[in-house]
Amino acid sequence: MSIIEEEEGLISRLQAFDMSAIESVFDQYNEAIYRYGYRLLGSQDKAEECVAETFSRFLHALKNGKGPKKYVRPYLYRMAHNWITDQYRRAIPEDEGLPEYHASQNDHPEDIVIDNIESQEIRNVLRALPENQRQAVVLKFLEGLENQEIAIAMNKPVGAVKALQHRGLQTIRKKLVVKL
């Protein structure tokens, strides 16, 4: 059974504001949304904020008779994506400084620095992508969603999603060449 099929059973309970079903959605996906937020924003605080905002919007949508009609996971990623896009639009410098320091005790300092610089480089390139390309690329190659799920999250046909991913990778390539 695919993830999508498993999620289908939840929808009617969610629409009835069944609290145990809603809680199970939080339990199942809050970590994934955190990772998504962190990958794109490079900050633990922002990633936590992303979780809080995404699930708050989810709750309010359910309460107002909205929320996911068929699939939960793509819906949550769409909410998270919208919030992250809002963050990008706020007056944040094009190239942010280094992200939060994080490393295990065994890492060499120079490796940590290089890793952090490279991560931030990629993050800046992703930020500069057109919104649709960024969403298609990140959901596929970082979050590991199936194209069918991404198509639902983006409300586009699967073919269009594949095209966006291809164009996204090309744009990243160009931007990295320019930067390097």
């Binding site: 994080h102 490279e118 991560s119 993050r123």
Partner: peptide, 15 residues
């Protein structure tokens, strides 16, 4: 490019 994207897989453990 995908390998470069994998750099973003390093997520610090959540408090």
């Amino acid at each position: 490019i995908k390998q470069k994207l994998e750099k973003l897989d390093a997520i610090p453990e959540r408090n």
